Structures are given as C-alpha cells and as structure tokens.
Simulated assay, not measured.
Amino acid sequence: MIRQLTFDLPARTAFRREDFFVSPANATALAALDDWRAWPGGKMLLVGPKGSGKTHLARLWAAEAGAACIPASDLATADLPALSAHGAVAVEDAETCAGQAGAEAAFFHLHNLVTQAGHLLVTAAHPPRDWGLSLPDLASRLQAAPVARLEAPDDALLSAVLIKLFADRQITVPPTLIPYLVQRMERSIDAARALVARLDAHALAAGRPITRQLAAELLDPGN
C-alpha cells in the first residue's frame, strides 16, 4: 500500500489584528489595551491562563504603540536604556522573573524608566501577588497597576479559531466537526493549532478527508 508522505513543517504564527477573534473571553482585555494612552500610571497588567491569547494581544499592542517586547527571563541581561528608549515596552511571562534577583532588579529599573513618560504592558498567568516576588518595591508597583483579564477561550472563540485554521490550510470540513472538536479539546489557542495540524497529518497519511469519524480516531480511540 502506498502511503502519502507527510512533513511536519514549522508553522509561522502571524499576530495580526484580523486573526484576533473577539469573544466574551477577551473583549474587555482588548478594549483596555486599545485605550492604552489612558492607562493610569502608564502601565497595565494583562493576566490570563496559558493559551488565552496574551502573546497575540501583546504583539498587537506593541505594533500599535511602537513597543519593544521582551520575555521577563531576559531582563537581567537586557539593555534597559535601549528598551526604555522605545517609549513603550511589553514584558511577557513576567512571573518567570520571581526569585531571580537580577531579573527582579532589572524589572524594577525598567518599570521606573518606562513609566516616567511612556507605557508598560506586563503579561502573566496570575496577578503579581501570586508570583513570589522578593523585591518589595517591584511587587508594590506591579500590584498597583490596573489589570486586564483574559479568560480561557470560550466555545465561540475556539470555534472561530478552528474554522480559520482549517481555512488557512484550504481544508473544508463538515459543519458538525467543529462543535465535536470544541467539546473534546484542551481549551487553548495553542491546542487548537496542534489539533488541526494532527488532523491534517492523519488525513494526508490515510488518504481520507477530515471528518468526525477521522477525528474520533484521534480523540476517542477507545470508542
């Protein structure tokens, strides 16, 4: 039997406005970031679980505000004056700096440099009080920042993302497949991308279209 070869090519993630699907899970956070010029103290915390869209929303804001983006884990060795010169900075996965003296000190100095006349966006899975920060001055400044919350993706958001991901691959699927997948998948955008890639690879290897039956073979193999 001849099987079609499949290649797991690296996917390029595009953080475009048209690819950000608005739903009740993220609408409030999106509105808060759109109003970035009015942030109290020039700063905002974007808090939400993994896969809720923090990176996408942070990159949209960075493009709008002309901001530099940096993972908190890189702060200890970063050129802080060069970062602050952008006038706006996004610090991502901020909780990863907790307990790292150099990173916490750098974060504190960057905060002071940027918020003097610019804007600082901080993303994290949880509020700062739960990070375990060792530097009291940094903790107090971050805890004083307003918070925009992203909830885990709801059914409407996951459905829209799945439809877009299939369309990007030029795959037509039956309408009943989307709700079937939504009820069985991990509730995150990353999980949606991985699931569509798995379904595509399985369909290509088997020489079959993507149907609910094929999806069941991956998601409910015992049934």
Score class of each variant (00 low, 15 high):
Arg12Gln: 12
Arg12Val: 14
Arg12Pro: 08
Arg12Gly: 12
Arg17Tyr: 09
Arg17Thr: 14
Glu18Cys: 11
Glu18Ile: 11
Asp19Gln: 14
Phe20Arg: 06
Ser23Thr: 15
Ser23Ile: 12
Ala25Val: 09
Asn26Gln: 14
Asn26Met: 10
Ala27Pro: 13
Ala27Ser: 15
Thr28Glu: 15
Ala29Pro: 11
Ala29Phe: 10
Leu30Gln: 13
Ala32Val: 12
Asp34Ile: 09
Asp34Leu: 14
Asp35Tyr: 07
Trp36Ala: 02
Trp36Arg: 02
Trp36Val: 08
Trp36Pro: 00
Ala38Ser: 12
Trp39Leu: 06
Trp39Cys: 06
Pro40Asp: 07
Gly42Thr: 02
Gly42Leu: 02
Gly42Ile: 02
Lys43Pro: 02
Leu45Tyr: 01
Leu45Ser: 02
Val47Lys: 05
Val47Asn: 00
Val47Thr: 03
Gly48Leu: 12
Gly48Phe: 13
Lys50Ser: 13
Gly51His: 05
Ser52Leu: 12
Ser52Lys: 04
Gly53Asp: 13
Thr55Lys: 01
His56Asn: 05
His56Ser: 03
Leu57Ile: 09
Leu60Val: 11
Leu60Tyr: 04
Ala62Pro: 00
Ala62Gln: 03
Ala63Cys: 07
Ala63Leu: 09
Glu64His: 08
Ala65Phe: 03
Gly66Glu: 03
Gly66Ser: 06
Ala67Val: 02
Ala68Asp: 05
Ala68Lys: 03
Ala68Asn: 01
Cys69Ile: 13
Cys69Val: 14
Cys69Gln: 12
Pro71Ser: 05
Pro71Thr: 09
Pro71His: 02
Ala72Trp: 05
Ala72Cys: 03
Ser73Tyr: 10
Ser73Ala: 15
Asp74Trp: 11
Thr77Tyr: 10
Thr77Phe: 13
Ala78Ile: 11
Ala78Thr: 06
Asp79Asn: 11
Leu80Lys: 07
Pro81Phe: 12
Pro81Met: 09
Pro81Leu: 11
Leu83Ile: 07
Leu83His: 01
Ala85Arg: 08
Ala88Arg: 00
Ala88Lys: 00
Val89Ile: 06
Ala90Gly: 04
Ala90Tyr: 00
Val91Gln: 01
Val91Pro: 00
Val91His: 00
Val91Asp: 00
Val91Leu: 07
Glu92Arg: 02
Asp93Ile: 08
Asp93Ser: 08
Ala94Gln: 02
Ala94Phe: 03
Ala94Lys: 02
Glu95Cys: 04
Thr96Gly: 04
Thr96Arg: 13
Cys97Thr: 14
Gly99His: 06
Gly99Cys: 10
Gln100Pro: 08
Gln100Asp: 15
Ala101Thr: 15
Gly102Ser: 06
Gly102Arg: 08
